[in-house]
């Protein structure tokens, strides 16, 4: 190698190439994306203020260290069989999120559709307070600090419960977090990721039959047994 300047130019070129490919090109492709007409309105629908604050709690508690929010394409592992989603997730689903917490470790189940899978706020409060209460054998850490404990007596606020001689009352943070969890649903049919039933509805002859394998979005899934809760 003959010298500093040549080395510098070479390194500049390689970095520029990766920058162009991995940052500028996706910026052009994804930058054009906008809300689309799908389902009941413009998708993705915005979150309520409470759920938005919950997203912040989710980020600050580091739930992303153990939970992903992405459903892989059909044919990729057992995401569908586990009932983690009815279709794969696509870029459109995350358009409003900031930060987008896709996650990359699944110590716990995927949460991309937890709002659809587990719509009961009470379940979530109790689960966060002590996961083993709701899921025997759970290894998820408990988040008791998101709750207030005070001695029983007086009116029990909504979503609170009594445990021994204490009342367990969710803090505003817990309320926000649960509102956020309930808002996690990506079940709207999109052109690039249609829901299985909308696919099977389109060509009626296909309904209930095994579609040829190959296409990741084929309605083969429609014949899957009903997904278990987890």
């Amino acid at each position: 190698m003959s010298g500093g300047p040549l080395l510098f130019l070479g390194v500049l070129a390689t970095t520029a190439l990766s920058f162009w490919t991995l940052v500028i090109a996706p910026a052009f492709q994804l930058g054009r994306q906008d809300l689309v007409e799908a389902g009941a309105g413009r998708y993705p629908t915005g979150r309520s203020g409470l759920a938005q604050r919950g997203a912040d709690v989710y980020r600050s508690m580091g739930c992303v260290e153990c939970h992903t929010q992405q459903v892989r394409p059909r044919g990729y592992g057992s995401d569908f069989a586990r009932g983690w989603g009815e279709r794969r997730t696509v870029a459109q689903d995350y358009l409003r999120d900031r930060p987008v917490l896709l996650g990359n470790l699944r110590i716990g189940p995927d949460l991309a559709n937890i709002g659809a899978r587990q719509p009961d706020p009470k379940w979530h409060f109790e689960h966060l307070y002590d996961p083993k209460r709701r899921v025997p054998g759970s290894t998820m850490p408990a988040y008791r600090f998101l709750f207030e404990r005070r001695s029983a007596g007086g009116g029990l606020p909504e979503d609170a419960w009594v445990e021994g001689e204490y009342e367990i009352i969710p803090t505003p943070e817990a309320h926000a977090l649960v509102a956020y969890l309930l808002s996690l649903q990506s079940q709207v049919s999109l052109p690039e990721a249609p829901l299985p039933q909308s696919l099977t509805n389109a060509p009626p002859a296909d309904a209930g039959t095994n579609a040829p394998a190959g296409d990741t979005n084929t309605p083969a899934a429609a014949t899957n047994p009903p997904a278990p809760a987890k």
């Binding site: 600050s60 508690m61 580091g62 739930c63 992303v64 260290e65 153990c66 002590d130 996961p131 083993k132 759970s138 290894t139 998820m140 850490p141 408990a142 988040y143 008791r144 600090f145």
Partner: peptide
């Protein structure tokens, strides 16, 4: 340690896994 005792720091937001790991 939370592998072994999931409820270890249930009352301390500072030491919850999701913060200690990062």
């Amino acid at each position: 340690m939370t592998f072994y005792v999931p409820a270890l720091f249930a009352d301390t937001s500072w030491l919850t896994v999701g913060r200690v790991r990062p």
